[in-house]
């Protein structure tokens, strides 16, 4: 059984077709990157996967649950992190994690918080107000929130946006290790090509709400005759220099 199945998914906002007939599936334990320029439909797709947006047409099934009919059963086994959705700033880090521990029905919340804080290296910050943290520290806390319920499916929207290279590398290394240990399925939307190349076994490239290409990073590099995914991204975004074998 696939962890995520997206079938003929469409979303329009009035005249604008944001997502246009998306079809893909993600296997359990797989990490798939969602690549695309601004307005390609990545965030809209993730919002539909999370049940925040109702599709205009098409179906989504996550962990065997139809998101139109039984989204809460799936949501309990999923989680999400995005730098564009904040945690309450006045609460301490521990309080925020406690809130989400309760919302996701986590057993042994205090032990879970202590473990995850140690793993992500912010034990000393547990009693600090979330609003006082640096961008890098906030990203670690947001990641901890996303992992508080040991999700089977993790949706990450630009998890390292606005991080310095050191913090970004820490998060990417940690995600690699976590995936290997937990077998978690990850869908990652990112503009950072190095990140996608490093973390993702497969990449879906979106443009104008459609998947215009897909494959492993190595397959895409070979297909476009490029040395890095950034050039592949530009080839697709600008419809330029395509050297795709016949």
């Amino acid at each position: 059984m696939h962890a995520i199945v997206v079938d003929r998914l469409c979303k329009s906002f009035g005249e604008i077709l944001a997502v246009n007939g998306l079809d893909f599936s993600v296997d359990p334990g797989e990490t798939v990157g969602l690549l695309g320029g601004n307005g390609a439909g990545k965030t809209t797709t993730i919002a539909m996967l999370l049940g925040l947006l109702i599709p205009t047409s098409g179906n989504i099934s996550i962990l065997g649950h139809d998101m139109a009919r039984a989204r809460f059963a799936a949501l309990a086994r999923m989680n999400f992190s995005s730098p564009y959705v904040a945690l309450p700033q006045k609460l301490t880090v521990a309080e925020n994690l406690r809130v989400y521990g309760h919302l996701y029905g986590v057993r042994g919340i205090e032990e879970r918080i202590a473990t995850i804080a140690e793993q992500l290296g912010f034990t000393a910050m547990l009693k600090r107000a979330t609003g006082e943290l640096s961008a890098g520290q906030k990203t670690r806390v947001a990641l901890a929130k996303a992992l508080i319920n040991r999700p089977d499916v993790l949706l990450l929207d630009e998890p390292t946006a606005s991080l310095d290279p050191d913090s970004g590398d820490f998060v990417r290394s940690w995600l690699e290790r976590y995936r290997a240990e937990s077998g978690c399925t990850i869908l990652l939307a990112s503009h950072n090509m190095l990140e996608v190349e490093r973390l993702c076994g497969r990449v879906l490239v979106m443009k104008h709400g459609r998947i215009v290409d897909h494959g492993s990073p190595a397959q895409l590099l070979a297909k476009y005759g490029r040395d890095d995914l950034e050039e592949v991204f530009l080839d697709i975004a600008r419809d330029r220099n395509r050297r795709i074998p016949a």
């Binding site: 999370l50 049940g51 925040l52 809460f72 949501l75 309990a76 999923m78 989680n79 999400f80 995005s82 564009y84 959705v85 904040a86 945690l87 309450p88 700033q89 006045k90 989400y100 919302l103 996701y104 029905g105 929130k145």
Partner: peptide, 18 residues
């Protein structure tokens, strides 16, 4: 509104909270 002001609604609505 506290949830709106803290931009936390997204997290709340993707949790299993009905």
């Amino acid at each position: 509104l506290e949830e709106v002001w803290s931009r936390n609604l997204g997290h709340v609505f993707v949790s299993p909270l009905r």
